[in-house]
């Protein structure tokens, strides 16, 4: 841009007639006045942060997500048979984004109905409720003009309750995983005219290297014998065990960053949680969720 300004400087001006002098003076005044403005404008443009930064709203953001999908689980404590079914999952998200990273927290409740894989006839015999809560920090390790890469970790508690009344006193099978999760997130923004909404794509991959599993004891039962001591009874019959790589998850996201800083999008999530081990300790659960989400800046 500076070269254009230099080239525009007249090097050979033909003699002017006096009657044009005022026009030229006015032109030069306007030119002189305009050039600094143009320069300022140019410098302003060159100083703009990359799109990946501009499109990310810094500050507090609240989110609401509603997902529908399907899930598969197998709880060897009660059955060697896989169960599959339909799930719904609302999630409430809180984000605090800074220039360097983002603090995030998700509160999720999942409900589902399942049928066993041996006799799949839409005979849903099991009800499931999952609850998970995580809190963590993702650091923006690098960014380009249109993209950014975030890496961080979360602490997550994932509680799963599966209810099958055919199991009588063992009807409610509880599995709890407390995990430290590592997560990476990549965001790509599509350049649009300033002032327009910014479409974006994102992908996340997470894995928990280690976790703590809480499972019922060897005999899968809640031996409730005295209602005023229910919690003590339940906890005394559950066992703790550490497990490696209890969680893998990934997601793909297409969203629109609105002019007002809010974000709306669709997201596909996959997660697989397991206690590994074997025998009655083995609990596996996989989820495929299609998620409609809204993020509202505060």
């Amino acid at each position: 841009m500076a070269r254009r300004f230099t080239a525009s400087t007249p090097q050979s001006v033909p003699p002017l007639r006096i009657r044009y002098h005022w026009v030229i003076v006015i032109f030069l005044l306007l030119w002189d006045g305009a050039v600094p403005n143009i320069l300022h404008a140019q410098s302003d443009t060159s100083a703009l942060p990359p799109l990946s930064l501009r499109a990310t709203h810094c500050g507090w953001t609240l989110g609401a997500q509603n997902a529908i999908g399907f899930g598969t689980f197998r709880d060897m404590g009660t059955s060697p048979v896989r169960y599959k079914g339909v799930v719904l999952q609302p999630t409430f998200t809180t984000l605090l984004v800074t220039k360097k990273g983002r603090w995030c927290s998700d509160f999720t409740i999942l409900g589902g109905v399942y049928e066993d894989a041996v006799r799949p006839r839409f005979n849903f015999s099991t009800f499931g409720i999952n609850h998970s809560f995580n809190i963590g920090y993702l650091h923006r390790v690098t960014h380009w003009n249109n993209a950014a890469l975030w890496v961080g970790g979360l602490v997550e508690n994932r509680l799963s309750v599966k209810v099958n009344l055919n199991y009588e006193n063992a009807s409610a099978g509880v599995s709890d995983l407390i995990m430290v999760q590592l997560r990476g997130r990549y965001e790509y923004f599509f350049a649009t005219r300033r002032g327009r909404c910014t479409p974006m794509l994102a992908a996340e991959v997470g894995w928990a290297p280690v976790g703590l599993a809480l499972r019922p004891g060897y005999a899968f039962i809640d031996n409730y014998t005295q209602e005023n001591d229910l919690y003590t009874t339940i906890l005394s019959n559950y066992e703790w065990r550490t497990c490696l790589l209890p969680l893998l998850n990934s997601s793909m996201e297409a969203a629109l960053q609105l002019r007002n800083g809010n974000r709306v999008g669709l997201n596909y999530q996959w997660s697989f949680a397991t206690t590994w081990s074997s025998g009655h300790w083995r609990y596996d659960e996989a989820l495929h969720l299609f998620n409609l989400f809204f993020l509202f800046k505060l």
């Binding site: 009660t78 059955s79 060697p80 048979v81 066993d116 041996v118 006799r119 099958n164 055919n166 199991y167 009588e168 006193n169 063992a170 009807s171 005999a219 899968f220 039962i221 031996n223």
Partner: peptide, 11 residues
């Protein structure tokens, strides 16, 4: 005794 339920591989 409290009866405990479970499922067999054949359902």
């Amino acid at each position: 005794g409290l009866p405990n339920g479970g499922q067999l591989p054949n359902g």
